[in-house]
Design a protein around this nucleic acid. Structure first.
Lengths: 196, 196
DNA sequence: AAGATTGTGCATCGAACGTTGCATAATTAA
DNA sequence: TTAATTATGCAACGTTCGATGCACAATCTT
């Protein structure tokens, strides 16, 4: 259903994917419009007609990033331990995947930003906070199930810390095998959590 | 020993400290020269006369940052466990100190940069790699001492991951108490490392 | 065929970026 | 006192940033 008007001369989804990759690699401010248009294979005017502004393009890119990766389906696994472990291993594999930029876009793309773009930074933080609460919720269930005895909040923060740190390690060149071993070590912390 | 010429009209160390704080908070590219001069209380020309360029100012700021925090003296503690634990607790306290910007400058100030400033990013990564090898060296000693049985490299990467992740948690608002609990949990991974 | 609507290329906008030239001020050395 | 040397304020540099005005192209609707 094209509607009236001249049809778009490029594939919007492919262009958005290219923008996502560049934002992922360079961060919000590190990716210039001129670089984005080059990567997307379109002109400046087409970018603004199709996406509105750099910030709106970034928001769409983040939404695509989130919908591309595995969501929160690991949290439906029967045990808290399996949920956390699956989450960490899945992320480790994508963070160090040589076919995509290293690390997590939500963690890295706006860690430090100029005063003008604080909104962008706050947006990514909101996603992290939301993900944190999803993890806390899963760990609370693990406690009511009698699987762990510890307070879920610090446990969640511990595994989040490992998760976030893996993004930096990946940026510094860590392989999937390297990150997998990090997860192995992190999971040895699980058993002590079962005891009060 | 002033030497010839008009004397500098400001305290160079205090100005550098102010620059360090702004770089720490906003990152290399996020801190504009105009903001730096405002924070340092000097004019543009004085900044360039005294420090040469933005990149040189940043390098001095990083050097100051490194010399300000505690160095690697925890690695001289008798056990590997005490070394690692002291390092993590010390960093946790500074990362969430309300009197300074949250997190670690070396981790956060150049995680994503534009193509022009890749050198700055590489410089901070070099520091991280160097710190990583200091930790690996300490853990190798722990193994030869018979304190741990595991391979030191993945163990180092695990604790580094926790460390790096704490910077992100601190940026998202974690308190010293929060990070301390993260360290508590991380240290429960130590005992399993002693067994093969 | 005519009108309405939307996309694209070109040129360019104002603002901010990091940086510098120049005249002048303030000091030491001769 | 004079010369040499360094610091500062002012104004501006060239470049890049994100964003836009406008003419024209290409489609749907009537």
């Amino acid at each position: 259903m094209p509607g009236p008007g001249r049809p778009r001369g490029f594939d919007r989804d492919r262009a958005l994917t290219a923008a996502m990759r560049l934002f992922w690699e360079r961060g919000y401010e590190g990716a210039a419009i001129s670089e984005l248009t080059a990567a997307m294979g379109i002109g400046t005017r087409s970018l603004y007609t199709a996406f509105g502004s750099k910030e709106q393009l970034f928001r769409e890119a983040v939404a695509l990033y989130e919908s591309s990766g595995d969501g929160t389906e690991f949290y439906e696994l029967p045990t808290g331990r399996a949920s956390v472990e699956r989450m960490l291993r899945s992320r480790a594999a994508t963070y160090a995947d040589p076919n995509t930029p290293a690390g997590c876009m939500v963690v890295l793309a706006a860690t430090n930003v100029s005063a003008d773009n604080e909104r962008v930074r706050a947006m990514l933080r909101a996603i992290r906070v939301q993900d944190r609460h999803a993890l806390i919720t899963r760990l609370e269930r693990a406690r009511t199930d009698g699987e762990i005895a510890a307070d879920p909040v610090p446990v969640a923060d511990f595994f989040l810390s490992v998760l976030y740190g893996m993004s930096v390690l990946a940026r510094d060149g860590a392989s999937v095998a390297d990150l997998t071993r990090v997860v192995d070590t992190a999971m040895t912390s699980w058993d002590p959590l079962t005891r009060r």
